[in-house]
Structure formats: structure tokens, C-alpha cells
Amino acid sequence: MPGADTKPHIIVFANEKGGTGKSTTAVHVAIALAMRGSKVAAFDLDHRQRTMGRYLDNRAATIKRTGRDLVIPRHATHDGENLARFTEVFDDLAAGVDFLVIDTPGRDDRFARLAAQRADTLVTPMNDSFVDFDLIGQVDPDTYKVTRPSFYSELIWEARKARAKVDGATIDWVVLRNRVQHIEARNMRRVSEALNQLAKRVGFRLVPGLGERVIYRELFPAGLTMLDSGEFGEMGLSHVAARQELREMMGALSLPEPALPLFA
């Protein structure tokens, strides 16, 4: 596990398409790592929407209002304009932590590209649809076979090359399948087959993500997560299922964290 005198493991959540659960997933990963005893910082690069920043601000307000002992990463939001400011905040947040979790805008952004080049783990959440798949690959309209990678796959390829030139490190690219629906089985199968084809072609790992659940939207105003089970009463079956999804996702991400039980 990273120590105080070493470079932190940088996790970047990036997708140039909105509505994929990117910020919600990023917050849950940051809180999960902090709950396992890691020192965690969070950097929100989306100065317009700043969902991660507002989520953690809401959490800080809940701590102040209620006196509850909730873990919270040190966090900041970039102004979206100044490269010197980006570097200053990045370096400040990265100092003395084990993990730096970065949330990027759902659009093309130069700071998101810089963050991608610095990533150790790059997470691209997507919904199970060919609309989302089109960001990373194109398919034949009749056979649904992958015809070529899309611009975003090429962008990540360039980020990997740039990173290799800097320090010889590799970027672990993870495509996170969020909001998988339990309907339209044929479409799900086609998307799954296309993802498996493209994963072999451009080199990413497929990981199960979080489902589409109302609970995530309900927890946002208080800055709570599915890990804070004691803060919102007895859990129903959907809550239990959501926590299991989170367990599986954290395990599949294969992050260099202490081997401690999650949600003990």
C-alpha cells in the first residue's frame, strides 16, 4: 500500500458523456477507501456542475449539523481555467495520501486529459446501451460486431503513451458497467459481446458497477453513501443489494488497499 513518502495511487473517473453515474461512483469509492483506513483526497475538475465537490460539502455540513463521526476525504474543486492552479491543488491534495480520487467533467476538457495521463487507475463508467458504447467503439448496425474504436479509446491510447514516456508506468483502464438493467436481455447481450470484443482490442478491463437506484439520489443532500448504513435506519432489500454491488465493484477494481473487510 502507498505510504506517506510515496506517490499516491491516482484514480481518475472519466467519461465525456454525462448521466453514467460517474460522480456518485467516485464518491462511493473515495469513502470506501477512507473507511478501510486509507488516507484519501478528492479533486473535482467539473467546476460547472461540481457534483463530487457538492456531495462532499453536503457530507461536511451533515457532520457539523449532527456531530456524527463520518469519514470524509480532504477535497477541492478546480476553477477549470488555470493550469498553475490545477498543478498547485493537485500537488497539495496528493501530498501525504494513499489515494487521490479525481472526478472529471462529462465533456471534453483539457484538465481531464491531464488527469487521465496521471492516472494509475482510469475508470470509465457507462450505461448498458449502444448510445454509451459509441463513446469508446463503433459497431456494425446489422451484426453488432465492433468495427473500430471510437475517439475516446484513441484518446486513452494517447494518454497511455504519454504516461509511459514520463515514468514508464501503465494505466489500468477499467470500463465500469453502471446501471445495468434487468430487462431487454437481447440488447444487454449484444452490448456485453461488443464490450468483450473491444476490451481485447484496445485493452481495458470490464467491471460490474452500481445499479440504477433511487437511494443514491436520496442520499446526496446529506452527503451520505451506502456505506453509512447506520445513518439512515434499517436497510431494505434494495439497500442490501446496493451494498453488495459496491462490495463487488470495489473488489473488481483491484486497488492497492489494505485487505480489511468492507462494511464490517
Rank of each mutant, 00 (worst) to 15 (best):
P2K: 11
G3P: 02
A4M: 06
T6I: 00
I11L: 14
F13Q: 01
G18I: 04
S23D: 03
T24D: 00
T25A: 09
A26I: 02
V29D: 04
I31T: 00
I31R: 01
I31H: 01
G37F: 01
G37V: 05
S38F: 02
A42C: 03
A42I: 02
L45C: 02
H47D: 05
R48A: 14
R48D: 10
R48Q: 10
Q49Y: 01
T51M: 01
T51K: 04
T51H: 00
D57G: 06
A60H: 13
T62H: 10
I63H: 03
T66Q: 10
G67N: 06
R68D: 11
I72A: 12
P73Q: 13
T77F: 00
H78F: 05
D79E: 02
D79G: 11
E81N: 07
N82E: 07
N82L: 02
E88G: 07
F90M: 10
D91L: 11
D92I: 07
A94V: 06
A94R: 07
V101Q: 03
I102Y: 01
D103I: 00
P105M: 09
R110T: 04
L114E: 06
A116K: 08
Q117E: 15
R118D: 08
A119D: 05
D120S: 01
D120I: 04
T124R: 13
P125L: 04
P125Y: 08
D132G: 09
D132H: 13
F133Q: 04
F133R: 09
L135P: 09
G137P: 11
K145T: 15
V146R: 10
R148S: 15
P149F: 07
S150Q: 10
S153F: 06
L155I: 15
L155W: 14
I156M: 12
I156P: 13
A159G: 11
K161L: 15
D167R: 09
T170W: 08
I171V: 12
W173Y: 07
W173P: 02
W173T: 12
V174E: 01
L176W: 10
L176R: 05
H182I: 14
I183Q: 14
E184T: 00
A185F: 14
R186W: 07
R186P: 00
N187Q: 15
R189I: 07
R190H: 10
R190D: 13
V191K: 02
V191Q: 04
E193M: 01
E193P: 00
A194R: 12
A199S: 15
K200V: 15
F204P: 08
F204S: 04
L206D: 06
V207H: 08
V207M: 14
V207E: 12
E212L: 14
Y216K: 04
E218S: 11
P221A: 03
A222W: 02
G223H: 08
L227K: 04
E234C: 08
G236K: 03
L237R: 12
H239Q: 13
V240I: 09
A242S: 14
A242M: 03
R243K: 13
E248Y: 11
M250L: 15
A252M: 05
S254Q: 13
P261S: 01
